[in-house]
């Protein structure tokens, strides 16, 4: 529970952070809320030699009206997302998801950007991003890039963001009238989901799955089946298609697949009400 030695620098701005990433190279890591990175370091599963602290960059903590989307600064805390009126009105699913992450301490320190970049398949936020078809804005030495959520989660704790880039903004399409549901099956209130399902439904449907493989996944088969007019029950039976759930102390792959069926069905029922 004691980290390996590391150096610490604080970035004053996004550009400074990019510059510091360039200087310190591969062994450097950005530090946002620290609620994913520091636990890994304490277990010595991550041993970055330099931490570049972007946690205090106020310029990246905001929720703004972007017209057809809500623009959320990467360093906005889960708490600020969960208590934003704009989020509540325009993307109520996101409000629910942010409000159920961990416990109050985690929600006050953990950030939406950290959640997205960390790329943990057990995290809730990436699945919500999939359901909501979000776009991510990053800044690097080559300037600004936009990433579609599809294809962003490339592997276990891996995303499409470059090691020299900073995530700055998350753009979430407004869906004020859509039905939605967040089903988080967990052992204790502050735990990660054993399996989770984030779902938005209007004329189309978006479903993100938590903890059903080495990355956060879109339930493509379910979305397609509903698109072709399948019933909720029939579509939900496809919930585990294309998934490769892990085996851990909480659940076998078989049990996770079963939970995915049940939770996707419940999510669709709730979102269709």
């Amino acid at each position: 529970m004691i980290t390996a030695p590391f150096d610490y620098v604080r970035a004053d701005s996004v550009d400074h952070a990019v510059q510091l990433l360039g200087t310190h190279g591969e062994d450097a890591k950005l530090l946002a809320g620290g609620h994913s990175l520091l636990p890994l370091m304490k277990l010595r599963l991550a041993t970055p030699s330099v931490l570049i602290d972007v946690g205090r960059l106020a310029e990246l903590s905001y929720v703004r009206d972007g017209g057809d989307h809500v623009a959320i600064g990467a360093l906005t805390s889960h708490h600020d997302v969960a208590t934003s009126d704009m989020v509540a009105t325009d993307v109520p699913l996101l409000r629910r998801v942010a409000g159920q992450i961990g416990d109050p301490q985690v929600r006050h320190l953990g950030t939406i950007g950290g959640s997205v970049v960390h790329g943990d398949p057990a995290s809730d936020m990436p699945a919500a991003m999939l359901a909501l078809r979000a776009t991510f804005v990053t800044v690097g030495p080559g300037g600004q890039r936009e990433h579609s959520v599809d294809g962003f989660f490339t592997g276990f704790l891996e995303t499409a963001i470059g090691a020299d880039e900073v995530l700055t903004e998350i753009r979430v399409p407004k869906v004020p009238m859509a039905g939605w549901s967040f089903q988080k099956f967990q052992r204790r209130a502050q735990d990660w989901a054993v399996v989770g399902v984030a779902c938005v439904r209007n004329d189309t449907v978006g479903i993100g799955l938590v903890n059903m493989g080495s990355t956060s996944l879109r339930a493509t088969a379910v979305e397609d089946a509903l698109g072709s007019g399948a019933s909720i029950a029939d579509a939900a039976a496809l919930a585990d298609e294309g998934t490769e759930p892990v085996d851990d102390l909480n659940a076998s792959p078989e049990y996770r697949r079963h939970l995915a069926h049940v939770l996707v069905r419940r999510a669709l029922e709730e979102a269709s009400r």
């Binding site: 636990p39 277990l43 052992r187 204790r188 209130a189 502050q190 735990d191 102390l249």
Partner: peptide, 28 residues
Amino acid sequence: LWEEAVYDEDGQLLNATLVDYLVPTAAE
């Protein structure tokens, strides 16, 4: 309902942290 020190057949404790060893809280 929650707690168990789980050992594998090699005698490794699989849930040594409080993330994996589930002590319940008031919320449950």
